[in-house]
């Protein structure tokens, strides 16, 4: 009896021929050079490659935080290349969660207040926002630290707060920039477990830019970049050999 063919997951991100050059004239640097790229719903996709290959630029473009020169970009069916800046801001507010290498938690706010930020930006009331933040704090295992300031927490704990902040408004696209590079192996593994769980939502996509080969195994797919282009896409999860 043959296996029933299943439809491939719908695309979350579809980048077609996107280019981005910084500067002009002799100092111009082409960061993206006609990039084609896809990310599927329900997957954790990693973008890897050497420094300066355009990973972070591609991530910024996908997140809607950086304009590109040419090409097309669809994120969950929304053509970002056609949207006005205000509509892109609105799109980010509703659909994108961010996790940064340096955490970017506001040090003068408590952990709960930091987590509330995306909800408050979205116009959710303070009471509802705090209730949701508390629930997420429990999920990331820091339920008792909500009223502390981030500076009192370890790097791993701060990144867990950042993950809670990225998930609190239930975005469909989670953008992670080097989320484990500032963390030790075990903490990095814990963070990747949380991100992998987040990506299990079939309506969500988690895109991670990383140098950290200790966490490649968590990727459902892995996209290799070089010189502003996508060189290879590894479709198999598990051990990636990037030496070729």
């Amino acid at each position: 009896m043959s296996a029933t063919p299943t439809n491939p997951p719908a695309l979350a991100v579809h980048v077609r021929g996107v280019s981005k050059t910084f500067g002009t004239g002799e100092t111009a640097v082409t960061a993206l050079n006609g990039v084609d790229f896809t990310a599927r719903q329900g997957e954790l996709l990693m973008i890897v490659g050497p420094s300066g290959c355009g990973k972070t630029t591609l991530l910024s473009v996908i997140a809607g935080t950086l304009n590109f020169d040419c090409g097309e970009l669809d994120v969950f069916g929304s053509p970002l290349h056609r949207l006005k800046p205000r509509e892109i801001t609105e799109f980010r507010k509703r659909h994108v969660g961010f996790i940064f290498q340096a955490f970017n938690l506001i040090p003068t706010l408590t952990c709960i207040e930091n987590i509330c930020v995306p909800l408050l930006i979205g116009g959710v009331s303070r009471r509802v926002a705090e209730r949701k933040a508390l629930a997420l704090l429990d999920e990331v295992g820091l339920g008792s630290r909500g009223h502390e300031r981030p500076t009192n927490l370890s790097g791993g704990q701060q990144q867990r707060i950042a993950i809670a902040r990225a998930l609190v408004h239930e975005p469909r696209l989670i953008i992670c920039d080097e989320p484990t590079s500032a963390l030790d192996k075990d903490t990095g593994a814990h963070i990747m477990d949380l991100l992998r769980n987040a990506a299990r939502n079939p309506n969500r996509c988690v895109i991670v830019v990383t140098h950290d080969n200790r966490v490649f195994k968590y990727a459902d797919r892995l996209t290799e970049m070089e010189d502003g282009r996508v060189q290879r896409v590894h479709d198999q999860g598990g051990n990636y050999d990037l030496s070729e």
């Binding site: 997140a63 935080t65 801001t89 980010r92 507010k93 994108v96 961010f98 506001i106 930020v117 930006i121």
Partner: peptide, 18 residues
Amino acid sequence: ENLRHLGALKAMGASNGL
């Protein structure tokens, strides 16, 4: 000093007006 945090708020969807 808070520019990075304000940039993060902007990335998260805070408008210039806000």
